[in-house]
């Protein structure tokens, strides 16, 4: 437990034999380290975005206008993006519950919740596809747009595209794990595999938090 008293455990853990991260299964340790590496990938993308946005002398298109939707004759800024954000948070919630039910050995509920997570993930990707379609039909290309700096489109397609690939891969990963849990492949374990896929899924949500703040809101 991470408490002030627990601080003393750092030296004990790092100084001990066999394992450094006590009680952490191999797969979970590996997933965490992978996510650390992936953090560096996304951070480099975002740093590149910051750099080109700052260096270009052309004005940067106003994201809040670009990503607005017209509802009942009223233009609502960032509407779709807001919905996507809520969708992804919802999926994170179902994921967290799936992990919880997994550890309670309630396999049925866990599988259902994983499937729900995958569903929300799929919805997210679909909305993203719609967003791409809409922007492309408005003339946004990776190399030009009608409003300002051309790096706007380049960054948009690259960053959301790379994130979208992560979501899609996550959906596939979730489905595979759901299937295998259902088949009973992990019955002899604690179902920590659900926590592992959960880590990946929450990470995808985490990245979106940063993209939302820096690309859409900034």
């Amino acid at each position: 437990m991470a408490s002030a008293a627990g601080h003393a455990t750092i030296i004990r853990d790092w100084g001990s034999d066999v394992t450094t991260f006590k009680g952490v299964p191999w797969g979970k340790a590996m997933m965490w380290i992978f996510l650390l590496s992936d953090t560096f990938i996304f951070s480099c993308f975002l740093t590149a975005y910051m750099t080109v946005r700052t260096t270009t002398a052309e004005p940067w298109p106003n994201a809040s206008e670009v990503f607005s939707l017209t509802v009942l004759g009223q233009s609502v800024p960032l509407l779709l993006i807001a919905i996507m954000t809520f969708d992804l948070i919802t999926s994170s919630g179902t994921m967290a519950m799936a992990v919880n039910y997994g550890y309670r050995r309630d396999k049925k509920k866990a599988v259902r919740l994983i499937l729900a997570t995958a569903f929300f993930g799929f919805v997210f990707v679909s909305m993203q596809a719609f967003e791409w379609y809409k922007l492309i039909s408005e003339g946004v290309r990776p190399f030009k747009n009608n409003w300002g700096a051309e790096q706007f489109g380049a960054c948009f397609f690259m960053i959301t595209g790379f994130h979208g690939l992560h979501v899609s891969a996550g959906v596939a990963y979730l489905l595979i794990i759901a299937h295998r849990v259902h088949k009973g492949k992990y019955d002899h374990t604690n179902y920590e595999i659900i926590e592992i896929v959960g880590l990946y899924w929450h990470f995808v949500d985490l990245v979106w938090v940063f993209i939302f703040a820096f690309f859409y809101l900034w």
Binding site: A2, T20, K22, F203
Partner: peptide
């Protein structure tokens, strides 16, 4: 959600 709070400091 990622339970980091409940992990050990190491």
């Amino acid at each position: 959600f990622m339970h980091l709070k409940y992990e050990r400091w190491a």
